[in-house]
Amino acid sequence: MDKPRVVAISQARMTSSRLPGKVLMPAAGRPLLAHHLERLARTPGLDGVMLATTVNAADDPVVECAQALGIAVFRGDEQDVLDRFAGAAALVGADLVVRVTADCPLIDPALVGRLIAAFHDGQPLDYLSIDSNRYPRGLDAEIFPRRLLDEAAAKAADPAEREHVTPYIYNRPDRFRLGSALVPDRPVDPVDQRWCVDEPADYKLVRRMLETLLPANPGFGWQDCCKLLRDHPEWVDINRSVRQKTLH
């Protein structure tokens, strides 16, 4: 049996309602999207990386950023993200899809690689994810076969399933083989961290982290991020209000 082709597909657009243009905001001299894509591309076990964006002219700069890094791009419907992912997966010839979002510039390639390895090991699975309640937010990733993405794109009728891509799979445990989400080996310290960029306070924190970590350790991982925040406990307060808001 041929080895399945594993491709990471990340979604990005300029028209975020809470922080428009966030993916191209600068940090350490480069757009957040460039940090995200370059880190993602270092993931062990990946055969390719693709960016899925929209056909809107506003997203032309997103396309240019990705293409400058040698990342393939698929452009599709802004609202039907599920169909956009299915089109991207077909274009790149993926057998297994790793889904991530471009508002995660601190994504950890080693952790995504662990997700891919875990999906291959043991009993056959249809879906596996990183537990975003146990890891800091902003490290999120999920993996599933393209055939299920195609099925979801053909059959999903709920608007939430079209927007969020994978609920069609993980909300049907009676039909699909769902693996136990990956959790850290030990509790995260500091706890309750949020490293995805949705609001200005998130951007302020993540930019500060990138500009501190990159000069000394370009290949930093998520544990290095935790250590940085332990060394600078006052930084934890930067986006505390956003974290508290998302809990309610």
Rank of each mutant, 00 (worst) to 15 (best):
D2K: 12
K3P: 09
Q11K: 10
R13V: 03
M14R: 13
K22Y: 03
A27E: 05
A27P: 01
A34N: 04
R39C: 06
R42Y: 02
L46G: 07
D47G: 11
G48L: 06
V49A: 06
L51C: 07
A52W: 00
T54C: 05
V55L: 13
D59K: 04
D60V: 14
P61H: 05
A68H: 13
L69V: 09
I71Y: 04
V73T: 08
R75G: 00
R75I: 02
E78P: 05
Q79I: 14
R84W: 02
G87C: 09
A90V: 08
T101L: 12
D103L: 04
C104S: 13
D108H: 05
V112W: 03
Y127F: 15
D131N: 15
R134G: 14
E142P: 05
E142C: 15
E142A: 15
R147F: 15
D150G: 06
E151D: 09
A154I: 03
D158H: 13
D158L: 11
V165E: 01
T166R: 01
T166L: 00
D174Q: 15
R175H: 14
G179E: 09
S180F: 07
V183I: 15
P187A: 04
V188E: 08
D189R: 11
D192Q: 10
W195Y: 07
C196S: 13
E199L: 06
E199S: 05
E199C: 02
P200I: 06
P200F: 05
D202L: 06
Y203A: 14
Y203D: 04
V206D: 03
V206F: 05
V206M: 10
L210K: 00
E211R: 07
E211P: 00
L213P: 00
G219T: 06
C225N: 10
C225E: 11
K227E: 14
R230H: 10
D231V: 10
W235T: 05
V236C: 12
V236W: 03
V236H: 03
V236K: 04
I238C: 07
S241R: 15
R243I: 14
Q244G: 07
Q244H: 15
